[in-house]
Design a protein around this nucleic acid. Sequence first.
DNA 1: TCTGTTGAGATTGCATCCAATCTCGCCTAC
DNA 2: GTAGGCGAGATTGGATGCAATCTCAACAGA
Lengths: 235, 235
Amino acid sequence: MSRATAALEGDSTATRDGNASARVADALREQIIHGEYPPGARLRQEEIAERFGASRVPVREALKSLEAEGLVTLVANAGAWVSRLTLAECEEIYQTRERLEPLLLRYSAPGLGPADYDTLDSLAERMAATEDVAEFLALDREFHMTSYSAASTLMLGDLVNRLWNTTQPYRRAYTLLIDVHSQRIVHDEHHLLVTALREGDLESAERTVESHIRRTRRLLSGHPEIFSDTTTDRR
Amino acid sequence: MSRATAALEGDSTATRDGNASARVADALREQIIHGEYPPGARLRQEEIAERFGASRVPVREALKSLEAEGLVTLVANAGAWVSRLTLAECEEIYQTRERLEPLLLRYSAPGLGPADYDTLDSLAERMAATEDVAEFLALDREFHMTSYSAASTLMLGDLVNRLWNTTQPYRRAYTLLIDVHSQRIVHDEHHLLVTALREGDLESAERTVESHIRRTRRLLSGHPEIFSDTTTDRR
DNA sequence: TCTGTTGAGATTGCATCCAATCTCGCCTAC
DNA sequence: GTAGGCGAGATTGGATGCAATCTCAACAGA
């Protein structure tokens, strides 16, 4: 199946830049986040290696990285699976986010300016207007990441990113279920956040993000059926 | 230097248990935490491989894991160094801990019992009694980890552990400097924490840990000289 | 019909080998 | 005397090959 690698082989120098493992990790991460590998899906080294036109060595290193990020679960001498979460585990991640994202916002807020506030408003409006789930998810993520974009942190920013990544498949399933009323509340909270940032009221902004995440967590708790997935294998 | 691996070669089956990479990662992590590799020290793949009686492949996978944990910094086509922190980065980690450890304690507290409280008291007393820095550090860590030991979390427990690991070298340098007065306050805070846990006052326990970490962070801020290390190489 | 076992195929783990890149001291040219 | 370039040694990155382990379906026995 070396035909599958044709798109990559076009750039013959790309395979020789000394970081194939990073490239594989980035590409795999994107594919998992975008749902091309659902939770519970098995990841075979050889298949992945073939697809990226690399050998299994950099693939294994990429899987190691993704395991540390929580996206992949490795079992010695058995294989790799896309991590699957229970409702309780997802709630743990949301509770962690409730504590961390206000802190990250505290790091970011002083560096945000009027142009950023306008971008945030625009993103919030587009979220309210769209009816496409994929676009809604992408805009929501872009909105929050923009609010954190001015934070130059060692690990906190990456950490929050990882927490979003591991819960992304469930956020997608959940977004399909929320009603117009909840959607309106999300929009209001986003608007409140931008307003607090514009006014320089950091305390209020922090509390708004925290409440925003907590509300989502509680709504998620009401949909345990999202986590009882029996279509794919174990783990 | 193959003589150095003699102790490991004694068990010839150990190299064939299908997780050499995990063994190398665990051992390297311990050595970094215990200060055998100081911040900024270069980690050469071949030297490490030789020392553990393995090839460079599992060593590279181990380094990937440690990089994701924040203990090691990798640069493509250049090498691996033990991560070095600036004062600002260390403060970021402490601020993160201030938010996360109260939450972890909330997960753990319901599972702790009288036997655990006694263990905690004993550890606190031994900390007050010792004058050895290494023992003080070990007891401090064991005290806090015991208070979190009943939490069965997906990632929060591991995450807190990683934050302790990356700051361990600086905690050691700092412990050498604190005076008797500060040491007494640490002891009082530990005692307060155990008391709150015994009384089932979770709110108070959470606030006590938070204050405890914040106080340490502020004291650390007063010793920027710990972070201006010019003895070893860059990065 | 159900349960325990066994063996071939599939898959992972690691060692060895080769290519690419970086480091750094020496040499040449101006 | 100084700046720029060159190249040998050291080090990392990746591909291939082999051994060990796991998977799973077919089969034998109760």
